[in-house]
Amino acid sequence: MDFMVFRCCTLLGILLAAVTHGLEITSSGSTTIEKASGESVKLDCQFTLANEDSGPLDIEWSLLASDSQKEDKVIILFSGDRAYEDYYEALKGRVHFNSADPKEGDASINLTGLRSADSGTYQCKVKKAPGIRSRKLRLTVMVRPSKPRCYTEGPSHEGKDVSMKCVSAEGTSPMKYTWEKTTDSKLLPASAVLDSLTGSMNVKNASASASGTYRCTASNRVGSEECFLTLRVTPSPNTAGIIAGAVIGVLLALILIGLILFCCCRAHNKKKYEKEMSYEIREDVPPPKSRVSTARSFTSVASQRSSLGSMSPSNLHEYIPKQQYDKIPSEEYDRPPSHAPVPPPARMAGPNLSRMGAIPVMVPAQNRDGSIV
């Protein structure tokens, strides 16, 4: 009897619950989704209606704000048998209902061309009075690793530590890097030390056996990319010989520069000397002889004119002009001492000139070269 009562009560409770909550969301998949950028995703939201749900059907998808102080953003809406898809500018043209007629029980949406900014919590809310139900899904859009760059850092010589790097410029953390050798024994050197977070691999005390081709793979939860590196471990160079050669090269360069400067200075000084010599007056060249002769000729002519001016025409026959010197004074000084100089012409006596009506004129004394004493 008690068992029958219990069954009746349970059945009554189920019926009351069905009457009170007729609308139900039936999707049961994972509420956490991870996708790579550029891909597409379906946010699932299936529902069922009850007979008592007689009101108009409204389906609303919104992106919940991470801060409680901010407002949620409606991204797509179905109301009055019509879909409205241009509510959210950041997703305009990239969000659509999965079904052409969501009234059939499929309120799912598709997001295309995913970007890292599309990450967030999305909520599906289905309303048909008196029933109201909602479902939340967490979407994380991850950026797959970009093609990494493989390179060595520093010289690759035997006996030295060789550092190999692998870096991917883009990619959502956590990122993981792995190294492997693709040639010879395909085994990494025994002294290799790897860092899977930074992508570096250091080979301690490298030997020639470490030479070969290596592959680095950068990966995260949504994708992976790889690059290749060819390592050649060479013998250590002769450091002393390199230093000596460098010193000798520097010295030769300095000597060559010095020779060039010396030749340039010498040529410059030679041109300067020739230019100065072209304007220089030699001290051993005697002065022009014409100046003394001209001065003496002017003095003789002046004396003759003065004497002639004091004579009258009656006594002109008494004045006999003496023969002029036919040589310049410099030639007289060069004449030997045995030859006596020619005496100056005779002058008329003062009384004779007075009787002739002449006016006495005082003539300054002159030396042999004609200058006034």
Rank of each mutant, 00 (worst) to 15 (best):
L254Q: 06
Y273R: 13
V285T: 07
L188S: 00
I248H: 02
S236G: 00
D195Q: 08
V247E: 06
S290A: 11
S300Y: 09
S290M: 04
S300M: 09
S236K: 06
S185M: 02
F298H: 12
A240C: 04
S293C: 04
H268A: 15
G249D: 08
N202I: 15
S207E: 02
T230H: 08
S300L: 13
K204A: 15
C227E: 15
L252N: 03
V301H: 05
T230K: 15
E274L: 14
A208W: 01
G245I: 03
L229D: 00
L231Y: 04
R282Y: 08
I243N: 08
S236D: 05
S224L: 07
S200T: 12
Q304F: 08
D284M: 06
I260Y: 05
K270F: 09
H268W: 13
K204D: 14
R282G: 06
M277R: 09
S207H: 00
S211Y: 02
K272F: 10
A190K: 14
L231I: 04
R305L: 14
N238F: 04
C227L: 06
C265T: 08
C227F: 06
R221Q: 07
K289E: 10
M277G: 01
R215A: 13
S211W: 00
I255L: 15
R305T: 07
L187N: 05
T213N: 11
M277H: 06
L308P: 00
S300I: 13
K270V: 10
G249H: 03
L251G: 09
S196N: 08
R282K: 14
L308W: 07
T217P: 01
N238R: 11
L261S: 14
L194Y: 00
K271S: 12
N202A: 13
L252T: 06
M277W: 09
C263K: 12
A267S: 12
A302D: 01
S185H: 01
V292Q: 13
E276V: 05
G223C: 01
P287E: 14
S297C: 08
E226W: 11
P287D: 11
A218Y: 08
P288K: 09
V250M: 12
G223D: 03
R282N: 12
P287N: 10
I255T: 13
A246E: 10
P189T: 03
N205G: 07
A208E: 05
Y279G: 09
C263L: 15
E274W: 07
R282I: 05
N202E: 12
R221T: 03
A210I: 01
E280F: 14
E280A: 13
S307E: 09
V285A: 05
C265Y: 09
I243W: 07
E283Q: 11
S207M: 01
A192C: 01
